[in-house]
Amino acid sequence: MTSIHRRDLLRGSTILAGALALPKAGHADVPAGRDPFNYQITRTDAEWRARLGEDYAILREGSTEMPMSSDIWAESRKGRYDCRGCGLTQYRWDTKVNLPKGWLFFVASEPNAQLMSQDISGDMSAERNILNTEIEVHCRRCGSHMGHILLVEEQVLHCINGASLDFVQAA
């Protein structure tokens, strides 16, 4: 699976130009579930790999999917978005913002659904650069990587990998 830094694409003038110019891998500073927090849902590495298949790198290692690669990124029906790792509801349809960037965007998550961490990329050996710092979003129950909270088109939004979520249509 090829992955890239979402911030690099969103800063570029177009998604395509960004994707072609910046094909580097994006990974979380601390992979999902490998921090000192005690998650309610835990699995062995082999169990996570069997459950998640090719999306293991996104949910457990903090990679970012390619834009428009998820079958739910343009979803517009009423429903909810659950963590693919454990089924905990993360977002509702009415908090989604439809942007043609290739990922899912939400204004807010469900209460008590997520944990946040600081995700610092690039060479920070000289001095921390606030411009290279993002807020990383994880599922509160299993630690799976969801995406990041970013400034997008003058809005602070949750920029989420479709591979991290299962869409459940409202009855």
Rank of each mutant, 00 (worst) to 15 (best):
100 P>I: 08
61 E>F: 00
100 P>V: 09
166 D>M: 09
67 P>S: 05
18 G>F: 00
31 P>G: 12
134 E>P: 00
133 T>M: 13
162 G>R: 02
11 R>D: 06
64 T>F: 01
52 L>C: 08
139 C>V: 06
3 S>K: 03
151 L>C: 09
145 H>K: 10
162 G>Q: 05
144 S>W: 01
50 A>Q: 14
56 Y>Q: 06
30 V>I: 15
164 S>V: 08
120 I>T: 02
64 T>E: 06
59 L>V: 05
84 R>N: 10
83 C>S: 07
13 S>N: 14
32 A>G: 12
53 G>L: 09
17 A>V: 04
110 E>C: 13
133 T>E: 12
75 E>I: 08
37 F>H: 15
81 Y>I: 07
1 M>T: 13
99 L>T: 05
137 V>A: 10
41 I>W: 04
13 S>F: 11
93 W>I: 01
150 L>I: 09
7 R>C: 04
152 V>A: 08
81 Y>T: 05
58 I>D: 00
106 F>Q: 04
169 Q>C: 07
152 V>H: 04
144 S>G: 15
120 I>N: 05
159 C>A: 15
137 V>P: 02
75 E>G: 04
10 L>N: 03
70 S>T: 08
67 P>Q: 04
88 L>Q: 15
82 D>L: 14
146 M>T: 01
103 W>G: 03
25 A>W: 07
9 L>I: 15
14 T>C: 10
2 T>F: 11
8 D>P: 00
5 H>L: 10
165 L>Y: 02
22 L>V: 05
170 A>D: 15
53 G>D: 11
72 I>Y: 08
137 V>R: 03
119 D>T: 06
30 V>P: 05
25 A>R: 11
17 A>S: 13
124 M>N: 14
55 D>H: 12
54 E>T: 13
35 D>C: 11
40 Q>N: 14
56 Y>G: 04
58 I>G: 02
